[in-house]
Design a protein around this nucleic acid. Sequence first.
DNA 1: CTATTGCACTATGAAAATTATAGTGATATG
DNA 2: CATATCACTATAATTTTCATAGTGCAATAG
Lengths: 120, 120
Amino acid sequence: MSDDFCPVHAAIGVLQQKWVLHIVRELLNEPRGFNELSRSVGGCNPATLSQRLDELVTLGVVGREVQSVFPPRTLYRLTPAGVALQGVMQAVENWGRTYIKPDPQDGHACLNQQQVDSAS
Amino acid sequence: MSDDFCPVHAAIGVLQQKWVLHIVRELLNEPRGFNELSRSVGGCNPATLSQRLDELVTLGVVGREVQSVFPPRTLYRLTPAGVALQGVMQAVENWGRTYIKPDPQDGHACLNQQQVDSAS
DNA sequence: CTATTGCACTATGAAAATTATAGTGATATG
DNA sequence: CATATCACTATAATTTTCATAGTGCAATAG
């Protein structure tokens, strides 16, 4: 009673974890060290980042390359499966740029209703 | 100092919330009522589902249509901005079907290493 | 020589999000 | 008359994420 495995469901399970898409986005630009990645992702707690990276490494989306134990230098780099997420990121970027703009009130996210209403 | 609004960052912020992609996936098939959606999404707590739907409605990705207060009947349907997430779902589906398979050990998700290694 | 910075993280306890579970009121179904 | 269904809400427990501080040691700044 668990044989209804759906790869799409599983994929969503991976991608909807907090920070995963941000991490992937940064690593798509170029491989980074832990603190570097932490800064560029912005706002992610190191404990969470560490856990997320462990999971992604275990899953095989990200590779951890320990370049030197001392001075410490570790590189996180997308595996081919990780690089393949470029398609997803591209789609998210398209959607975001088309439909999301800053809320004129509080500067938070809201939908670009122009785009929604008047497809002139 | 907060004028670096990035629509892509904001889009990720929306899509990485737990259950959002699952909800969108179901609503892309067809509009549904609350319990219907709850069942088809599978495993989402009604409090969380309710909150997520509120947020998506507020954002403008989902529309709530109260068809009758009694007997209660509400329909959740994607707005055009929601339907536009089809591109994202498509990309996620492609990635999932290509790279994710059930782990032979425990039946959980893992990567399809065949795909990764031998691109014949 | 000494102080600071930077590396990759881990530890701790507090705060926030999600969960299981139960329940709302009324009607339609068995 | 008992049960199921609709769209949720309420409560309390659990899980996840968080802010903050700290590890050991080399390279750099003063």
